[in-house]
């Protein structure tokens, strides 16, 4: 008891030290993240003129109405959602499958882990450059398709759906290694006894997977789901460098459209409103994912 009181007193006396540790991070976070969020929120209600807020005119929800009714921003949101709907389950299923397979091996685990992780550490700029070359009209892929199937070359990056397909394939290709690594980490934490007991009861690998492995790593799957969904909405570089919204803004993603409005059309208020609308959308999706997994 005495000890406890003494301890409390000591800490209270040296509270400035705790503050000293805490403050730099708080100040930095407030200045470069919190303040921008608030500023952006205010901007979204203005016809914003670069410089001072004073000269800008308050327009209420006008920017939001524009965002919601604008065909291009609708297309950008839909494109991003399609991309998320393909790449998130794609990365999770393939990543989990590979993780389970690698976990079953007695040799060469590290070898495969490194190989599958390779695309993750390759930068998005390089990946975009490379795949733009592979998917160009006279590219290697079209040549292969032509020489094997004798069909007309596909103009991969010139129509909306094929561009989305290409971007999704790249997204999955680049992301498998990450989800695989997360799942390997989670799999090693599943107690082996569970499998041993199951083996005595005459279970098989497939049953084990569905009745032991999946329930044990449920939290990890949720974590991966949320992180990858956020990641999908973060997609910017490959779109910017491979299609840049062409043709006619049909392949615009949320971030590329936001960026264009902000830095090319100088449409700051609209861009801010778009950011907030999408932020709200992501929050709703994340909350739904959390609730769904909590119930299941």
């Amino acid at each position: 008891m005495l000890k406890k009181i003494a301890k409390k007193r000591k800490i209270k006396k040296e509270y400035w030290q705790v503050t000293l540790l805490f403050l730099p991070g708080v100040i930095f976070f407030s200045l470069f993240t919190l303040y921008p969020i608030v500023k952006l929120f205010i901007m979204s209600f203005y016809e914003y003129k670069i410089g001072a807020l004073k000269e800008s005119t308050f327009v209420g929800l006008h920017n939001y109405i524009q965002v919601i009714s604008d065909e291009i921003s609708q297309a950008a949101v839909v494109n991003t959602l399609i991309y998320a709907l393909i790449t998130v389950p794609g990365q999770i299923v393939l990543g989990l499958l590979i993780a389970v397979f690698i976990n079953k091996l007695s040799k060469a685990k590290v070898f495969f882990r490194v190989l599958y992780y390779f695309p993750v550490i390759t930068s998005w700029v390089i990946v975009s450059v490379l795949f733009r070359y592979i998917f160009q009209n006279e590219g290697y892929l079209n040549y292969l398709i032509f020489s094997m199937l004798e069909v007309e070359p596909v103009h991969w990056l010139e129509t909306r759906m094929s561009s989305l397909a290409v971007l999704s394939i790249i997204g999955i290709w680049k992301g498998i290694g990450w989800s695989m690594t997360v799942f390997i980490a989670a799999l090693t934490a599943v107690p082996l006894e569970l499998y041993e007991v199951a083996e005595v009861d005459g279970s098989n690998s497939i049953k084990n997977f569905f009745y032991i492995t999946l329930p044990s790593i449920r939290n990890t799957i949720l974590f991966t789901f949320v992180m990858l969904t956020i990641g999908a909405f973060n997609t910017f570089t490959p779109v910017k460098l491979m299609t840049d919204g062409k043709p006619l803004h049909q392949t615009e993603f949320v971030l590329t459209w936001m960026y264009k409005n902000a830095f090319e059309f100088r449409n700051m208020g609209y861009s801010a409103a778009l950011s907030f609308t999408v932020g709200l959308l992501i929050s709703i999706i994340a909350i739904i994912q959390f609730n769904y997994f909590k119930k299941a």
Binding site: V26, F29, L31, F32, T33, L34, Y35, P36, I37, K39, L40, M43, I230, F233, N234, F236, V254, L255, M258, Y259, A262, M268, S271, A272, S275, V278, G279, I282, S283, A286
Partner: peptide
């Protein structure tokens, strides 16, 4: 609450804040 706010900001795609960040 502070920790919750930190976690919540993880949801925001980094580039979304670049207009005010550019002004800073």
């Amino acid at each position: 609450i502070f920790f919750l706010i930190i976690i919540a900001t993880m949801i925001i795609p980094g580039l979304e804040l670049i207009i005010p960040q550019y002004q800073i």
